[in-house]
Computed example of a mutant assay.
Amino acid sequence: MKSAPLSERISAELRDEILRGRYRPGERLPSERDLAQRFEVHRGAVREALKKLEQLGLAKIEAGGARVNPLEEASLDVVRHMLTLSDSPDPRVVYEVFEATSGVMALGVRLCLERASAEDHQQISNLLRELCQTELTRAREFELFVEFGERVAQASGNTVIMLVHRGLRIGILENIYEELVLVDTDNREQLERVKELALAFEAREGPAASEAAYSLAVDMRNRMTKIFEARLASSGADTDRRNFS
């Protein structure tokens, strides 16, 4: 077997064990020799796996071995893995993803209205008008929200907002929404928030549009968190699945 697939498998297992709390922040991971024996591979594959963990920010390679970092020192990519530790995403991770998204969306909308061209403004307004329709499928709703977020981020002219949006969307928001495409939930309050945003955005009322965007993200956060909390409760799984310390 080639070392690259082996190193990816090893790093994935160690990554999930760190996120589940088997190895706590500040603890040393097993030595290269012990890991090589555990996975029945040569030490080169283990060394590559540890480098991948270091790239994720989950561990720091030091003289004598690798030590686990606090979770807050990890990269944004780790959130995607936190959402896939079990069959259904951790409700608290979902909550925190949308908590972060709400602030980014609100700022992005305000900057977009200050900087967007007339063409960009019209295209985004058209997206919001379609989102106001009541007969949308969950899949189409998701497509429109993704396109709305992308266009707002680009029109904001802020590179950091673009990068944060892309990091949250790829493998994170998509992962959450895939779980909800077939779920029949009451989204009447969300629809009202979208209508408020559409009206304020089309009128170029920056503060009102920013507030509506924030309220929309908060509503989505609360709705999705409740869905995943119910799933977690019905499965009987442990609610404390993350390595917070």
Rank of each mutant, 00 (worst) to 15 (best):
P89V: 08
R67W: 07
V93H: 03
F39Q: 05
K52Q: 14
R92D: 14
G64Q: 07
F39R: 03
I124G: 00
A45Q: 01
E141L: 10
A153S: 13
E40A: 14
E72K: 08
A63V: 12
F98A: 02
L113R: 06
R67E: 15
A153M: 07
R140F: 05
Q154A: 15
V97T: 06
G57C: 11
L111A: 06
T84V: 11
E143R: 01
L56G: 02
S102G: 09
F142T: 09
S117Q: 06
R115N: 14
E147K: 05
A74Q: 04
A74L: 10
F142E: 04
L144R: 00
L58A: 00
G103E: 11
V79R: 03
L76K: 01
V78M: 03
T134V: 13
S117N: 05
V104P: 02
A116M: 07
A59N: 04
R47E: 14
E62V: 12
A49V: 12
R110S: 15
R115V: 09
E135S: 11
V78Y: 00
E143C: 01
G149K: 02
H81V: 14
G103V: 08
F145Q: 08
E141T: 10
S75I: 11
A139S: 12
Q123C: 06
C132K: 04
Q133P: 08
G108N: 08
V41A: 06
L50I: 13
Q154V: 15
L144W: 02
V93R: 02
E96Y: 10
Q133D: 13
A49C: 06
L131S: 02
L107W: 04
V152E: 03
T134E: 15
R140L: 11
N126T: 14
R138C: 00
E73P: 02
R80K: 14
E135D: 15
Q154L: 15
D87M: 08
E40H: 09
E40N: 12
H121I: 09
E130K: 00
